[in-house]
Nucleic acid binder design. Structure first.
Length: 599
RNA sequence: GGGGUAGUAGCUCAGUUGGAUAGAGCACCUGAUUUCUAAUCCGGCGGUCGGGGGUUCGAAUCCCUCCUACCCUACCA
């Protein structure tokens, strides 16, 4: 009973330490005030420290002293004196000053144990993290393939990065809408419809809808190139569709259904589910309102026959127009994107809109954002925050965009299948005695995860080189390495009698070994890693952390046996295993990656 | 011409927005396995952070300039 009350008290006191950096910042700011510093000019500048010096460091004394032209070391000494008189700080950490005025915090070993005891479940993590993005309603626009075509490698980054961002935002308390802005309208349909009517292979359509539709489009396109009369028929098909003729619309709907069905097969494999497929066609009757509003509020003007928006205050967009209606009178994607922005504001009440596309579209989305800002301001609407989450190319070994042997883009479906096959071969070799269905399940998880993780572990704004050997390796920053670490922990728990897992907190003795301390320290960094990932919308920040966590665990695992005689030692090591698994599984699941019980 | 993104070890990549002696993995050299999964771990080798200037206590990071690659730059998305 007493032990329980103490545990509860600890939990309460520890609550504010969930975000260690933030808690230290609070104390540092209070200390600055107490020490008589100009608090306007002082910022704490808290960051993880090099382990040789401490666990966390406060660097704010240096820029402060610079600004006020005083001695940084003296400032640091004043701050430390004030911090040391703060019981909340001095009971958990030892402070020291180093170099020109770095303030180092080294946590006491029992602090790590207390922290791990206070945040001992997925719920505790989630609850503390869910404040970060509470009250946000975010529409995330990602994937966005064209219909009637198979997806290829070029689509993977948007899907994988977009899904990770959705999960991260949800974890941090946001209400997320997943919207697939498919390209389901436009000129290719004339050629497709012509070929569909003349050359359809019904059997193929049933077995592989996207493959057959794509074949038909290419066929129609080729035939139209060769034969002027075919080209004319294609034009007529398009005219009929755009005129909204019943038969054409029916066929168009049929094509879309089949397309989405085909797309969903791949999304299922990647564990991605959309809330909406509001593609370009959805907005086609909303473009007139866009023209009217932008003209009415004086943003749009005629130029060379087109309706465009210039931004005179911008060095480049003063000259480079945002074309919202082409000179032939047709809309383009600027138009539908503006209509989309309006819809997401009005219908979804979005506080934030995130679009995940490749970096070539940077200019377009900058113009879209500038235009929306002015448009919404003039019409008295509250504009959602807009983030264009962009990414670079996937290259082959030669550093050029990755292609199949035939020179065509590699199909996403084929890429995933190859990953699963390769993973199967490896898993089978390592575990020949696993049952067949488990082998297949492991191969599926390892294969898909490896492809996803290869993408998520590199900075999205850079290009990266795709290499089977690298992404399926068990060394380095790869999915198999992380999954292996997780499954080793699972393996330990299979060897432990479940009755031994009770009251670990009261049985555990303080951490002693270097490996224990390193691992414990790393687990605490989960919070900071999550924050920086969310702030920058860069999933690789979380990947890097998870890799380091796995490394810290592997080092611990090799040096410190968990199942030992000493009850205190055993309990604290079990706690480390549990919390490592917790952070690892939470982190991987935020990246859209499933873990395995064994592999 | 204007703008953007990038250039870090032989290769593939990090580097928390100006902090301490620039870090990982691969490769190469070494050591650890009667073991809770060695699909692992410990150690070593490896750097003019594209070049040059500048800003300051302090620069891979900020400013200027040049070089290289890719992308955008009026009606594709």
């Amino acid at each position: 009973m007493l032990a329980r009350s103490i545990a509860l008290l600890y939990r309460h006191l520890m609550e504010e330490w969930f975000d260690v950096a933030k808690r230290i910042e609070t104390s540092a700011l209070a200390a600055a005030q107490q020490a008589g510093l100009d608090t306007e000019a002082f910022s704490a500048d808290v960051r993880p420290a090099d382990p040789r010096f401490g666990d966390m460091q406060v660097n704010g004394a240096l820029p402060y002293a610079k600004r006020l032209k005083t001695n940084p070391r003296e400032i640091a000494q004043k701050l430390v004196a004030a911090l040391e008189s703060d019981d909340a700080v001095s009971t958990v950490a030892d402070l020291s000053i180093a170099g020109p005025g770095f303030i180092n915090f080294r946590f006491k070993p029992e602090f790590f144990l207390n922290w791990l005891n206070a945040f001992s479940s997925e719920d505790a993590f989630r609850k503390s993290a869910s404040r970060l993005y509470a009250c946000e309603r975010v529409v995330v626009d990602y994937g966005s393939p064209n219909t009637a075509k198979q997806m290829h490698v070029g689509h993977i980054r948007s899907i994988v990065i977009g899904e990770a961002i959705c999960r991260l935002l949800e974890y941090c308390g946001a209400e997320v809408t997943r919207d697939n802005h498919i390209g389901d309208w436009g000129t290719p349909y004339g050629k497709l419809f012509y070929a569909y009517k003349v050359h359809l292979d019904a059997e193929a359509l049933k077995n592989d809808p996207l493959g057959e539709l794509e074949r038909l489009y290419k066929l129609g396109s080729n035939l139209a190139n060769e034969d002027e009369s075919v080209l004319e028929e294609c034009r007529q098909e398009l005219v009929q569709l755009q005129a909204g003729e019943t038969e054409s619309i029916a066929l168009w709907k049929r094509v879309n259904e089949l397309s989405i069905q085909g797309l969903t097969e791949v999304y299922d494999q990647l564990d991605v589910t959309y809330d909406y497929y509001l593609g370009e066609s959805f907005y086609r009757d909303q473009v007139a309102a866009v023209y009217r509003e932008l003209e009415d509020c004086g943003l749009a003007e005629e130029s060379k026959g087109a309706l465009v928006v210039f931004h005179p205050e911008h060095k480049r967009y003063a000259e480079q127009p945002f074309i919202i209606r082409k000179s032939d009178g047709a809309s383009n994607y600027a138009t539908t994107d503006l209509a989309t922005m309006l819809y997401r504001h009005e219908h979804f009440k979005a506080t934030r809109v995130i679009v995940v596309t490749d970096d070539r579209q940077k200019d377009h989305f900058e113009q879209l954002d500038l235009t929306t800002a002015k448009w919404f301001e003039k019409t008295g609407r509250k504009r959602p925050i807009f983030n264009h989450v962009m990414f670079g190319k996937i290259n082959g070994d030669d550093g050029k965009p990755i292609k199949s042997r035939s020179g065509d883009p590699i199909r996403l479906k084929a890429l995933i299948n190859e990953a699963v096959e390769r993973a199967y071969a490896i898993v089978k070799e390592k575990n020949p005695d696993f049952p067949e269905d488990e082998l297949e399940n492991i191969a599926q998880t390892v294969g898909v995860s490896s492809i996803k993780y290869a993408d998520l572990s590199t900075n999205r704004t850079s290009d990266y080189i795709f290499s089977w050997d690298k992404l399926l390796a068990f060394e380095g920053n790869t999915a198999p390495y992380l999954l292996y670490a997780a499954s080793r922990i699972q393996s330990i728990f299979r060897k432990i009698d479940p009755t031994e897992l009770t009251d670990l907190e009261s049985k555990a003795s303080p951490f002693e070994t270097d490996e224990e301390m390193t691992l414990a320290r790393k687990i605490l960094e989960f919070v900071g890693a999550l924050q920086v990932t969310i702030e920058t919308l860069r999933p690789h920040m979380l990947s890097t952390y998870l890799y380091e966590l796995s490394g810290a665990f592997s080092g611990f695992y090799n040096a410190n046996k968990v199942i030992v005689e000493d009850p205190g030692q055993k309990a604290r090591r079990i706690i480390l295993c549990q919390r490592t698994l917790l952070a690892l599984e939470a982190g991987l699941s935020l990246l859209g990656i499933k873990t395995l019980k064994r592999m």
